[in-house]
Design a protein around this nucleic acid. Structure first.
Lengths: 347, 347
DNA sequence: CCACGCCAGGGAAACGATTACCCGTCTGTA
DNA sequence: TACAGACGGGTAATCGTTTCCCTGGCGTGG
């Protein structure tokens, strides 16, 4: 239990040595020449007084705070932010760093974003993680350049900064893949209407996988709606109303899949008996709790957070050059999470 | 854009004054006697150089970091943590404070919790918010006492520390109340099996409200299960299998309500036509997305976070004495969120 | 004409660490 | 015996601010 009032000086007095010596032994300074007895005296004096270092003073002197700034969007809206934070926190902690978090609104003005970064800079964070809540292009705060920084789940519109994003296309391929290997050949896609990378990349993955399997990917049915439950419901109604109704459905996200479940129920189609469904996002609350459990593709938020923290720290400590990695964003796997919504089609 | 290398000293040189003067004008020190012209010179010099204060140095000198430590459980599991963080962050920001976040596992050992708090203390946070993910009793880290602290969503087993918790009983009363005023008289409760305050308080609110309405609260049907979707499903099957089947159902949480939806569907009961349902928690992902939308009771996570930050800061700034508030936990309202799962019972 | 008070601002010691450099005392060896 | 070099450790500057207290000039009342 570190007493806030005990300093290195008090330890020095208690141990009968100078502050230099205390600093040397407590930090295990390699070039320090100190006898074992003195070391013991210092250590036990520190222990007894409940000494804890004042990280502020250390930081002031060493120009290293051991803090990472994390500006994150819409922290309360989805669990995604929590995942990123958790990944970053654990990776940071493992290397002796802590996180300072600033929340920002997804719709915040550039000025407000600048101010967020500024607050972190004033506190002299060693580096900054800039996270968005879904994969997209962002315009960076102007002052982000003054410390090492990594983008999480987004790429910069301008210039190059190291970024880590999910493998949207690969995720889509996995989703379609499991439908194919269950034996489906009529597969539809319920897509999002927003113009974001995920929309395009998942569509590309969808079509390409079908084509590579010998089907006509370009002709495969796609219905687009808002990527919410209601949108999923509407898109599914249209999709399932076709005369050549698909037996397998890939949904842009779990919320749309939830809508598809309702549409299927209304049409008297059982899942996975009459219709197999695959989602995207792996929002536990939905995917694990739907009945039957939704097979889906997980977004690697935890991993992105951890990757970002890890590489940021490497850069801070001079082990890596972020500029080198900035050329292309790093792409992380979107693993398939199998539950119970996929089965072989009825013949 | 604060340049990391510019200090008050550089501003002083540029403006042709002493550092004292710079400090005085930049901080608007009340007793400082400085001419308007000099003020202007200093301000524009600072502006031009892109000066930003070094909060570390300030903190070292003033013994105030302007940082609040937040240790939060299971940040990635539920959106609850995000809500608390958001509330705390916004309240803190409004008063010039920032948040340092440490994640801890709900099942972390006391030692690990001590270490978490210790890390915050080393960084000299001005106060600590200690948040749990559901309302319960906790054993506090031993070193929590050395700075002002507030418990969020939990109360201490030992001794008294200021805490803020949801009004579980009041929430239950509101839930039962809306069923009563819709005209229901046969109302059941799907309760949790864990021995936590929420379980007891919601049950008490349930029974009391019925009794006060002239019904036999003590005889009202209650089925308990694990507070998950599956548990809700099972409890609902039992509840709805009774010969005097309730027409209104109050569920311990939204997940159990989700299970009840499935049970009702299987039994051919439509919601809200044949059965009215009220949940608890207001987990957007579930409550807003079920069909029909689930009427539920919201837990005031945002408000608790904000209240905690606000009062913690008051204590830090000497405007309040936390010890006085520590006698009883502060109880915050759980407002009812009306959607579409409650209607009048069929006669 | 002098003392006093006000005005505008500056000097320097903290805050709690790190670290470059220095200094006495042994010991071994030439 | 004298000198080098280890050995064990100390002095003081420094990081960027804040803040207590001081100073020098000038107008003014007595």
């Amino acid at each position: 239990m570190s007493n806030k009032n005990i300093g290195i000086k008090d330890v020095a007095v208690a141990a009968g040595v100078s502050v230099t010596t205390v600093s040397h032994v407590l930090n295990d300074v390699s070039y320090a020449r100190i006898s074992p007895e003195t070391r013991d005296k210092v250590k036990s004096a520190a222990e007894q007084l409940g000494y804890g270092p004042n990280r502020l003073a250390q930081a002031l002197r060493t120009q290293r705070t051991g803090m990472l700034g994390l500006v994150s969007e819409d922290i309360a809206t989805t669990p995604h932010a929590g995942r990123i934070i958790l990944g970053a926190d654990e990776a940071a902690r493992a290397r002796g760093y802590n996180l300072m978090i600033i929340n920002t609104s997804g719709s915040a003005s550039p000025e407000s974003r600048d101010a967020d970064v500024e607050a972190l800079l004033e506190r002299r964070v060693d580096g900054i993680l800039y996270a968005t809540m879904y994969h997209r292009h962002v315009q960076l705060p102007v002052n982000l350049g003054s410390v090492p920084a990594v983008l999480v789940d987004s790429v910069s519109t301008s210039g190059s900064i190291t970024a880590v994003v999910p493998d949207e296309e690969g995720g889509a391929r996995a989703a379609v893949g499991i439908l194919l290997s269950a034996g489906h050949s009529r597969i539809g896609f319920l897509n999002n209407t927003d113009d974001v990378p995920a929309t395009r990349d998942r569509l590309r993955g969808f079509r390409a996988t079908l084509t590579e399997a010998g089907l006509d990917g370009d002709a495969a049915p796609v219905e687009s709606e808002l990527s919410e439950v209601q949108g999923g419901y509407e898109a599914a109604r249209r999709m399932l109303g076709r005369e050549d109704r698909p037996t397998g459905l890939f949904c842009y996200n779990d919320r749309m899949a939830m809508g598809a479940y309702r549409a299927a129920a209304e049409l008297g189609l059982s899942i996975p008996g009459d219709l197999s469904v695959v989602g995207f996002d792996d929002q536990e609350l939905i995917a694990a709790n739907l009945y039957p459990g939704l097979t889906t593709v997980a977004l690697p938020h935890y991993e992105m957070g951890a990757w970002a923290a890890e590489n940021l720290i490497d850069a801070i400590e001079g082990k890596t050059d972020l500029a080198l990695m900035a050329l292309h964003p790093t792409i992380l796997d979107c693993p398939l999470v199998k539950r119970d919504s996929v089965a072989a089609p009825v013949r």
